[in-house]
């Protein structure tokens, strides 16, 4: 049986439980499970300053992206505009609250929480908040990171602008606005944020008691 010492040298595949000896990787290389090809780990590094900058960028564009209309149509003189939030409220108001909730969660709430969560994590590390309370907050944020990251679906929403615009152009004039641009920028900021973020690196800041 293995002693705790060997834990550091060995990792387990999360998909098939294969025991694999861990070794250092050059940057931009990903270790795959030799048995089932699941991506296991890469260089556990991310720049905290980079994360902070991307968080602030994302936070700044979040407001115009969600407050300004993302799509506008002109049908025989009547003009209609909508923000992302309004699309969710509109379907909800029609009685389709499951759909409204799904839209709201994946296009507004999850991205907002993701930005705030990463911002908070970076600040906890930067400000060296080591009390029991902050450590438990930090753990909780890391535990929920995967879920928030999965629920953020801005890339799909950006494609849906295009699909909707094409469909609506069949019977009306369609315009994109500043909101569309801001929303696309928000998508890009979060995309880069997610690529820079490394969960394993963030876990390394947690003090593990013996």
């Amino acid at each position: 049986m293995s002693e705790p010492k060997s834990f550091k040298a060995v990792i387990l595949c999360r998909s098939c439980d294969f025991v694999i000896r861990k070794r250092a990787l050059p940057s931009n290389v990903r270790a795959l499970c030799p048995r089932c090809d699941t991506a296991l780990y890469d260089t556990p590094y991310c720049s905290l300053n980079g994360l902070l900058a991307l968080c602030i960028t994302a936070l700044i564009v979040f407001f115009p992206a969600n407050l300004l209309p993302v799509l506008e149509i002109n049908f025989l003189g009547s003009v209609r505009t909508t923000t992302v939030y309004q699309t969710a409220v509109e379907v909800w108001g029609q009685g389709y609250w499951v759909v409204g909730l799904a839209v709201l969660a994946s296009a507004v709430i999850a991205p907002a929480l993701l930005i705030l969560s990463i911002l908070m994590q970076v600040l906890i590390i930067k400000l060296n908040l080591r009390s029991l309370f902050w450590q438990s907050v930090y753990r909780r944020l890391l535990k929920n990171h995967g879920l928030l990251s999965q629920m953020t679906m801005l890339e799909i929403y950006v494609i849906s602008f295009l699909v909707s615009a094409f469909q609506l152009s069949d019977f009306s004039d369609v315009y994109f606005g500043m909101g569309t641009l801001s929303f696309t920028l928000l998508f890009l900021a979060i995309l880069f944020l997610q690529r820079e973020y490394n969960l394993e690196h963030m876990w390394s800041y947690v003090h593990v008691e013996k």
């Binding site: 909508t82 839209v103 494609i159 699909v163 609506l168």
Partner: peptide
């Protein structure tokens, strides 16, 4: 989710 986003945009507009 794409279809639901498209439907919600269409319904709102």
């Amino acid at each position: 989710m794409l279809d639901l986003f498209v439907i919600s945009l269409t319904v709102a507009l």
